[in-house]
């Protein structure tokens, strides 16, 4: 597995996988909120749906989350090319 440069989650295409590199805080408690849903540094995730402009559906293990664009912009990932 090779790690590429980090980029916001919004740049990922549906079907691609990535590992969370950093969650950039925005307002109080967002990092903790994402952590409680399973998104924190090191989390492996894949994008199931999402296109320019709208929200994304992300898969983390058995969890499926809808992430709004604002939220997804602040989650930085390194795309893992397996």
């Amino acid at each position: 597995m090779k790690c590429g440069p980090t980029m916001p989650l919004t740049m990922l295409r549906p079907g691609s996988q990535a590992r969370v590199a950093e969650v950039r805080p925005h307002g109080h408690g967002m990092v903790q909120r994402l952590a409680s849903l399973g998104i924190l540094r090191g989390t492996e995730l894949s994008v199931l749906q999402g296109d320019a402009g709208g929200a994304l559906i992300v898969r983390i293990g058995e969890t499926r989350l809808v992430l709004g664009r604002g939220m997804a912009h602040r989650v930085f990932v390194e795309s893992s090319v397996s």
Binding site: G27, M30, I57, M71
Partner: peptide, 12 residues
Amino acid sequence: GESTPFVMELPP
């Protein structure tokens, strides 16, 4: 102010 960050679990 910007809309709040949106996260929601999609139940199966």
